[in-house]
Design a protein around this nucleic acid. Sequence first.
RNA 1: GUGGAUGUAGCUCAGUUGGCAGAGCCCCUGGUUGUGGUCCAGGUGGUCGUGGGUUCGAAUCCCAUCAUCCACCCCA
Length: 424
Amino acid sequence: MNLKYRRLKGTRDLMLEEAERWAWCEERWADVLDRYGYGEIRTPVIEPTELFLRSVGEGTDIVDKEMYTFETKGGESLTLRPEMTASVVRAYLENGLTRQPGTVKFWYMAPMFRHDRPQAGRYRQFHQVGVEAIGSASPVLDAEVIRAALALFEAVDARGITLLLNSIGCPACRPAFLDELGAFLEANLERVPETLRGRVATNPLRLYDAKDDGVQELLADFRPITDCLCAGCRAHHETVRGTLGDLGVAFVDDPTLVRGLDYYTRTTFELTAASGRKQSSLAGGGRYDSLVEQCGGPPTPAVGFSVGIERTLLHLGDETVDPQRSRQSTVDVYVAALDEPAQRYALAAADLLRGYCRVEVDTTGRALKAQIKSANLRRARLLLVAGEQEQAADTLQLKDLTTGEQTTAARSQLLAAVREVLEA
RNA sequence: GUGGAUGUAGCUCAGUUGGCAGAGCCCCUGGUUGUGGUCCAGGUGGUCGUGGGUUCGAAUCCCAUCAUCCACCCCA
């Protein structure tokens, strides 16, 4: 069929059983996050462009080429959020939560937008479940946050998840490392592919997430960033590792894990699925001790993560459900009615039941046979038949669809009669 | 932004060397005046992604274009 309107590239329609599966996950995740002491936050999907420029950072792919940015008639530049952390920090400051005692812990499940080329596990509108814990610099919190991320996967029975862990230092120790790294790369520039050379000067750390084998070999010859941490960062990192050990959480040290956003300090981590060569990165996060201050607040340490919902579901391996084969919502009682007067009578009868159970009234006017077929598809336990004869006698036919037994009930006794069958 | 694959019925897909547009599923009707999942019979539904070109003739060959998927890049 030649469709007049189509879905935008990189977006999806979720319906019926697919939507139920999402709801199933969302319910479990909300419960887990609740148990870790997080409260929900919902923020607008659009923000001033500047918020993301300053936080995510110019020079990152997200800001340079993936943002949905547009201008209002008043000339203001707005952006559909490509990630959530900046918005949460903005909301934290805007609502005066700096005065809140203790650590402010938020969770969210929300759509994000990035103008990427879509592929398996990657969409232009995608969804993340994540947390931000604002107000504590303790490495123990890092470990708890990481533990919570793993708990989200456990809650939906996701297996084969690997935790990658690293520390990328702080403003005190990272510049020295970057200088050294930059000099090393300059000296070996011929081993860096041309497409990546731009990064050597602008953001040498970004070279680490290049998949080019030559670059990886080159970087392997260089000292890992974890060897260059200052005393504070080193102690922090060791405590994170030790605390994960206390919790029995297995992890892999990965000194090449730098993450694609500029605001991270110290701890960075990623949760990956070893399955094939698909989009294996299911979740990522880390500490961002400078971001709140950068956004105009008081110096406030924080840590968080986000999990890709589409990727997680993809990893669970469930086939996506064909909408046409997917069941319509199930009901307890299906009311068949033949013509319009019967439909009116049927609707009035249904109204007597809806405070008690799920009822569908068939208003298609199809043959009774077809209506009963639909009743079965909807998994109805009971069929009510409302026709001319029933109207005349002020009754309804009650048919138990599992046994085939059929009785007549006075309309005034309908609820009792229905309860008798459903509760038997 | 780069590369590859694929576009035929609502869905999954056949379609030979260029020669009348097909199957299964779904849906509808009947077999049963108003009684179900099975069965039987019948039926609806297609600008063959779109636009050009070659040809007596194009779903089929050529060109362009759009869309989808996959991969790169990067990330969730």
